Every structure is written in structure tokens, then in C-alpha cells.
Amino acid sequence: MTAAWEDDLAALWATLDNVSGPDFVAQMELLTARMPPAESLFERGAAFDSTGHPEQASALYREALAAGLVGERRRRAVIQWASSLRNLGQAEEALALLTAEAGQPSDELDGAVATFLALTLADLGREREGLAVALTALARTLPRYNRSAARYAGALMNDTLMNG
């Protein structure tokens, strides 16, 4: 059974492009007051993140995870926190989070983990390794040429390991 606030939350997120950032955050603050603490922290962090405030978002994601956030929201919090850290110039910390997350059980967010891992590696001057991560993730979705794409990604990674 879905909590009653889940529908209200989805409706609020649907308004993101139609309201000002401060109004969106204020509405999120009101809505999350009736949510469990970890979920509330995560959604407030996402609201700050989506309205251009990665500093506030980062702190809230950290708190949400420390409060025991679970399930899909936990994984989203890690991805979004790492993205915020990248935006704040803290790519090494983002890399640590995403590398650990890449080792978690596979789900529909694997591509998002790979995307932000690739971007983080590029931020760190490790573009070839980032490209290999992106190609590996993409290869899993291709109807054809997936083996070739995976081999090219492996070659890029091997080249990075030999020359890095």
C-alpha cells in the first residue's frame, strides 16, 4: 500500500517547471512535515538540488542516509549526493560514493550510477575511464553491437590501466 503522501509528492514534483524555486522548496517543506524522517530529508534535499542549491542538498542527502533511508530512495540519494558533490568541486568524494554504489545489487538505476560515475571520472581528468564506464552501461541496452561496444569499453579500460 502506498503512503498517502506519495501521491501528493508526485503531484508536487510535476509542478517543478511551473513554480519558482523558492515556492517549490516551501511547498516541499510543508509536504515533507508529514513524511517519515529519512524520506523527508531526502525529498527536501532533492527539492534544493532541483532548484540549484547543491550545498543544502548535499547536507540533507547525507542526513537522509544516516537516518536509515532504504530502497530506491537510498540509491537515488547516493546518486544525487554524488552529483551535488561534483557540482561543489568535490569529485573525489563523489567518486568514492559512486564506486561503492556501482557494487550494489543491480536495478533500474544502474545506468544513472554509470552516468554520474563517468561524469565524475571526466571531472578528475580520467576521461577514457569515464568513457569506458559509459560504453559498458550503454552496451547492455543495445539491440545489436553490444558485444563490440563492451569489447571497446574493455580496451579503453585496459589502455587506461596500462597507461594510468
Rank of each mutant, 00 (worst) to 15 (best):
D107W: 09
A10H: 10
S58Y: 00
Q104P: 09
L69I: 10
M157C: 14
T141H: 08
A47L: 08
W5S: 05
A114Y: 01
M28T: 08
R75P: 02
R73H: 08
A67G: 13
W5A: 04
I79Q: 06
V113M: 00
L142E: 11
R73Q: 13
E55F: 06
M28Q: 07
T15M: 11
L9C: 10
R151C: 08
A114F: 01
L161A: 10
A132Y: 01
R34C: 11
S50D: 10
A4I: 08
A149Q: 06
L119Y: 15
A102W: 08
E108R: 07
N146F: 12
A57L: 10
P54I: 08
E129M: 07
E43A: 04
W5D: 07
W81G: 01
R75Y: 03
W5R: 02
W5Q: 05
A10S: 12
M28E: 02
V78E: 00
V133M: 04
R126M: 14
L156D: 04
L121C: 06
A137E: 08
S58W: 05
L138Q: 11
F48E: 15
P54F: 01
V70E: 10
R126C: 13
L109G: 00
A139S: 04
E6C: 02
M1Y: 11
L60N: 06
L131D: 07
Q104H: 09
Q56L: 09
A155R: 14
E101K: 08
P36E: 14
L95V: 07
A112K: 14
A47D: 01
Q27L: 06
T115N: 05
Q27S: 13
L121E: 05
R34L: 15
Q56V: 03
L156H: 02
V25M: 14
Y145N: 12
A59L: 10
A10P: 05
P143G: 09
D107T: 03
L69M: 04
A100M: 12
L97H: 04
E129I: 00
A77S: 14
M157E: 15
D8F: 03
R126Y: 08
L30D: 12
D107N: 09
D107I: 04
A10M: 11
G125V: 09
Q27A: 13
W81R: 12
E55T: 03
M28G: 09
S106Y: 13
L131F: 03
R144M: 06
G52F: 03
G111T: 15
G45I: 11
A134K: 02
Q90E: 10
N158D: 15
R128D: 15
R151N: 11
A112M: 15
G154C: 09
E63H: 06
L156E: 07
A114C: 10
A4N: 10
W81V: 04
R86N: 09
A139D: 01
H53C: 08
A139V: 10
R128C: 11
R73G: 05
T51Q: 07
D123K: 11
E29S: 02
P143L: 13
A118S: 12
A57N: 07
A59K: 01
R128M: 15
Y61K: 02
E63S: 13
A11M: 14
G130Q: 05
L16H: 15
L98R: 02
L97C: 06
G71H: 13
V19N: 08
S148L: 14
L98Y: 05
R34K: 14
L9G: 05
L30G: 13
Q104F: 04
S20V: 08
L88Y: 01
E29W: 07
A122Y: 06
A137I: 14
L31E: 10
A57Y: 03
L97Y: 01
G130T: 03
E129R: 01
A77C: 12
